[in-house]
């Protein structure tokens, strides 16, 4: 102890302390944070906790027993997958009325989302949250996923999922920030204006291929900056702003003060 005290003014002391603090925090987080494997099958307690959360946060619109009211849909039979998608992307609880619920930072943590999902799943049979293996992009075939995406998804989400407009202010969101699980549950449950792609329509393996294709897009464009992947309109803006802008500036420079 004395040896340590003697070196407390050493110039590396702050660095060592910082490193120790970081290791401690990281270690505690790793030990205490709920892992995916740790989230075992929901218990009765989870369902009860989920019901309490539901009554406090969702019942105003969806009804005390999730039966739906005033044009808001019933949640009986939508399954855990739907709750997981809507709540973990922050779409529910809805912030304000609009053409469609916008994604925002989620209001609940992972445990609460699982509890809510367990409660809604207990109301009636519905699609479950996929397993980690089901959504693992490494197991999918991006080429097949690309073909499926072009045929089924690109007409709303754009060629590589940059998003697109729908009628009356609705839109298909960009998919760059979506996690594999969100992509899977979205296909499975068809949130907002999206149609349902059930397992007969696009098999679970094909869904994984789509996930692999979309994950591939996160590697960036081989041609340089992607310019938002919004197609020729973006390119047109850039040729006018950068191309013509630089060249007219050069022309002004070349033609400056000559006669």
């Amino acid at each position: 102890m004395k040896a340590i005290a003697a070196r407390r003014h050493h110039r590396f002391a702050p660095v060592v302390l910082l490193a120790l603090a970081l290791v401690l925090t990281g270690g505690l987080y790793a030990a205490l944070a709920p892992s995916a494997e740790g989230a075992a099958a929901p218990t009765t307690d989870d369902v009860e906790a989920g019901r309490a959360l539901f009554v406090a946060n969702c019942a105003t619109c969806h009804g005390v027993n999730a039966e739906g009211r005033d044009g808001n849909p019933t949640l009986i039979g939508v399954g855990a997958a739907s709750v997981d998608f809507q709540v973990s992307t922050g779409r529910m609880p809805m912030q304000l009325e609009g053409p469609q619920a916008a994604a925002k930072p989620p209001q609940f943590d992972r445990e609460e989302i699982d509890q809510l999902a367990a409660y809604v799943a207990s109301l009636g049979p519905g699609p479950a949250v996929p397993s980690a293996e089901q959504v693992d992009p490494a197991l999918g075939d991006p080429a097949n996923g690309g073909a499926i995406f072009r045929t089924n998804c690109a007409m709303c989400h754009g060629a590589i999922g940059a998003g697109g407009a729908l009628s009356e202010g609705k839109y298909a969101p960009a998919l760059a920030q979506s996690t594999p699980t969100e992509i899977y549950t979205a296909m499975l449950t068809g949130p907002q204006s999206m149609p349902v792609f059930n397992d007969a329509n696009i098999t679970p393996e094909e869904k994984r291929d789509v996930i692999a294709y979309l994950e591939e897009q996160k590697n960036g464009s081989p041609g340089g900056t992607s310019l938002g992947s919004i197609g020729p309109v973006g390119e047109g803006i850039w040729i006018w702003v950068v191309g013509m802008g630089l060249l007219i500036a050069s022309a002004v420079w070349i033609g400056a003060k000559s006669s």
Binding site: R150, A159, G164, E235
Partner: peptide, 27 residues
Amino acid sequence: GTMTINPVWNYGPYDPSPVGAGAQPDW
């Protein structure tokens, strides 16, 4: 050298059935 243009690998080979959102011609 710095900006992608017409990334045909994103659009895929032509097939009369699909069409992507944001389908526009050059400016």
